[in-house]
Design a protein around this nucleic acid. Structure first.
Lengths: 187, 187
DNA sequence: GTCTATAACTTGATAGAC
DNA sequence: GTCTATCAAGTTATAGAC
């Protein structure tokens, strides 16, 4: 019974458009056109663009967290989980569906949307820090490495888009994983 | 004779607004208001928004490259130059004035602007790769580490903005520098 | 719940006086 | 070179019929 409701189609279309164009650059009209519903339906389910954005970005964050946990939440050794997460295939040229919103004024001017982004990164940083701690690192060092690991991914996306080369993300990951694993051997 | 011309004031105002709001979210009218010149002057010097954006983003890239070279172009040992660059004080919550444009549709849809971004990162990656090579690394490893170093900065900005915490950037840098320098000791 | 029509405003750009 | 006035198109949102 996967009868796609108007609401679901609106959220799905908004997720796609926000991921490719950003929230500020996507008009409610574009979401309407992509979803195939009428103008009144949009404003019935989501009285303002803010409401639509919270629903769509929230759904995207939930998807992204679930996907991250597929690498991080296994029962493999800590280092292997970290490397699996870092090396997971990503659509580098598309950019991070979540991280890209940090430079979108329409998102950063909206407290509700900022909170959604904050929750995503705080959550991921918590999980990564815990895994680095499993490797025997003290809390502050584990936290710094978690930040570094996440920055590699987010920054790798930026480099890939700027140079129009997906290899820039994988190069950044290789550079970081190389340091991580050599470090491991020597400790 | 630093008589500020209308053109200079337009470019300066555009640089500020593009850095804080992005190109797509900044209207020519906003640039007019901030610069204090009249509407006709803008369209006299810059017939289209594209022309203004190329001038302003180009100027910002030149500034950023010059600033990077103040850390990277000294005669200090290679590792010290790299650490100096990574640890340079940055306005983390403001985001990278260059990197943020990779998620701005108005920029990425414009070939001229994409080229400006590309040139900035290709240039920085080249300089960083050369410095990593000075430390005795083979070319491919040096290139990967250069990508990682730049990704740490760009990703650190993203984390800092998402969590509204400037400490996220410095934590990412600490995590990476920690790995780099421990690595150094063991090699 | 869904639709069409349209309001009120902003956008990027042009016209033409000075 | 610089100005004000204005345009056509697009933006977010509302009105009111079905």
């Amino acid at each position: 019974m996967s009868t796609t409701t108007a609401r679901d189609r609106l959220v799905g279309a908004a997720q796609d458009l926000f991921a490719t164009q950003g929230v500020g650059a996507t008009s409610p009209r574009a979401v309407l056109a992509a979803s195939g519903v009428g103008q009144g339906s949009l404003y019935h389910h989501f009285p303002t663009k803010h409401d639509l954005a919270v629903a769509a970005v929230g759904a995207t964050v939930d998807d992204a967290l679930a996907q991250a946990m597929r690498s991080l939440g296994t029962d493999a050794p800590a280092i292997e989980r970290l490397v699996a997460y870092l090396e997971r295939p990503r659509d580098a040229l598309a950019g991070c569906k979540v991280g890209r919103h940090t430079s979108d004024q329409a998102v950063m001017d909206d407290e509700g949307l900022r909170d959604v982004l904050d929750a995503y990164f705080v959550r991921l940083l918590g999980v990564l820090t815990a895994i680095f701690r499993e490797t025997g690192l003290p809390a502050d060092v584990a936290r710094d490495r978690a930040h570094a690991a996440l920055a590699i991914i987010q920054g790798g996306y930026v480099l890939a888009r700027a140079t129009q080369d997906p290899g820039a993300l994988t190069a950044a990951v290789r550079g970081f994983v190389g340091l991580l694993t050599t470090q491991e051997k020597n400790t």
